Amino acid sequence: MKNLVGIDREKSKKLVIELNILLADYEIFYQNLRGFHWNIKGENFFELHNKFEELYNDAFSKIDEIAERILTLEGEPLHTYTDYLKTTEIVEEKNIIDGKKCVEIVVKNFSTLIRKERLILSLAADADDEGTVSLMSDYISETEKTLWMLNSYLR
């Protein structure tokens, strides 16, 4: 049995589960970035304040894209923080003002996201789901570059 976009329904269900996990991770990541943006203090304030805004705007776009991909695959995206917190691997951060610590957390969170994006990429390739493959390929390329840059900042 195939779904509306021609993907095996069972494989599509597995993709929806993993995409919902990624959605939950991005939602908590997004909120962490907002907190870092708002609360950052110190000598790198201007640089990091702007970087965190750039990152949370990007995460916000990805959240919408992931939810819409889930809907395209005939799934239902998670949409409550209760569900996100039960599902995510990313830890909520609170009251962190040190720029270096914030960047270290962002690097850790991106490492979690890229690992999950690679898993979804593999599942999507197995399902002949070019839409999800394309989405994850783009995310992985962007995340790799961002990880390199943030890691360079920390050295």
Rank of each mutant, 00 (worst) to 15 (best):
V5G: 12
E10F: 11
S12D: 06
K13M: 10
K13E: 13
K14I: 05
V16G: 00
E18V: 10
N20D: 03
I21Y: 11
L22G: 03
A24S: 04
I28S: 02
Q31I: 12
L33D: 04
L33R: 07
L33C: 08
H37T: 01
N39M: 11
K41H: 12
G42P: 01
N44P: 08
F45S: 02
F46G: 11
E47T: 11
L48F: 09
H49K: 07
K51Q: 07
F52E: 06
E53A: 05
E53S: 04
D58M: 06
D58G: 09
S61L: 12
K62G: 02
K62V: 01
I66S: 07
I66R: 03
A67T: 00
I70T: 03
E74A: 01
G75P: 07
Y81E: 02
T82E: 14
T82H: 13
D83G: 10
Y84I: 08
Y84N: 05
Y84H: 10
L85T: 15
K86M: 12
T88D: 00
E92I: 11
E93D: 11
N95E: 14
I96V: 13
I96H: 05
I96N: 00
D98S: 09
K100H: 12
K100R: 15
V106G: 06
V106P: 01
V107H: 05
L113V: 05
R118C: 09
R118E: 12
L119T: 13
L119A: 11
L119I: 13
L121P: 08
S122V: 11
S122Q: 14
A124V: 00
D126N: 12
T132W: 00
V133I: 11
S134P: 01
S134C: 11
M136S: 10
M136N: 00
S137D: 10
S137Q: 13
S137A: 15
Y139N: 09
I140R: 09
E142T: 11
E144N: 10
W148G: 06
S152K: 13
Y153T: 04
L154V: 08
L154H: 13
R155N: 14
R155C: 13
